[in-house]
């Protein structure tokens, strides 16, 4: 993957220090509506610290906002864009519940600084079902009851889709190894492996 983002020069702008509690509006923010269909979107919160403009695509739609440069991609998705499918389970890259795809590859969004999304494509659990229904991996998770409480499930499914696309779903042993970055405390691992085996032939390798 050649350095596709090399041309972007992304810099933070130091804001005037805000008085505690003062609400300012986001400049030029475009909030995608994907995933918000059933709920009122959160109001843009004022950003503190030093902000950085981030412009990227999420689930195929453009989004642009100035964001506290300390923020993670996970907190950008959840707290700024209302895309709450990706979950916070550890905030340190140790559980996989926050897994999303960036430029088609699975990453831990809790350990990815929001600013790193600039100029890139992000896909979340809200963006994988087709207009005609569930993604084959989502259906396979239902068929094999590859979930219980459902909290780790969005991360499991995003990791599972990537696992297949990477070519790491050729044997049960390989699936187990390449899905070990996603902890399921309910213990649905047997179902998860079976679901991936079912869905794999329906998903193209990248």
């Amino acid at each position: 993957m050649p350095n596709s983002q090399g041309k972007h020069r992304l810099e933070t702008t130091r804001r005037r220090v805000l008085k505690a509690g003062t609400i300012i509006s986001l400049s030029g923010a475009m909030l995608p509506t994907t995933g918000l269909a059933q709920q009122a979107g959160p109001q843009p919160s004022p950003e503190n610290g030093v902000t950085v403009p981030v412009s990227f695509r999420v689930n195929g739609r453009p989004a642009a906002l100035d964001i506290d440069a300390r923020a993670s991609l996970l907190d950008l998705l959840r707290e700024r864009l209302g895309l709450v499918g990706a979950k916070k389970g550890c905030d340190h890259g140790q559980c996989g519940a926050c897994t999303v795809h960036m430029n088609g590859r699975r990453i831990a969004s809790c350990l990815t600084m929001a600013a790193k999304a600039h100029g890139r494509d992000v896909t979340t659990i809200e963006g994988i079902a087709g207009a005609d229904g569930l993604h084959p991996m989502q259906q396979a998770f239902i068929d094999h009851d590859a979930l219980q409480c459902g909290y780790c499930t969005p991360g499991q499914i995003m990791a599972a889709i990537a696992c297949v696309k990477e070519g790491h779903a050729t044997t049960p042993e390989q699936i187990k190894e390449y899905m070990s970055g996603n902890i399921c405390r309910c213990g649905a691992y047997v179902g998860i492996v079976a679901a991936i085996e079912q869905a794999a032939p329906q998903i193209e390798r990248s």
Binding site: N3, Q5, G6, K7, H8, R9, L10, E11, T12, R14, N48, G49, V50, V52, D68, A69, R70, M113, A115, H118
Partner: peptide, 12 residues
């Protein structure tokens, strides 16, 4: 975490 600035460099 203290406020911080972020810049993406293009070359070393």
């Amino acid at each position: 975490m203290k406020p911080l600035s972020y810049v993406r460099a293009g070359t070393a």
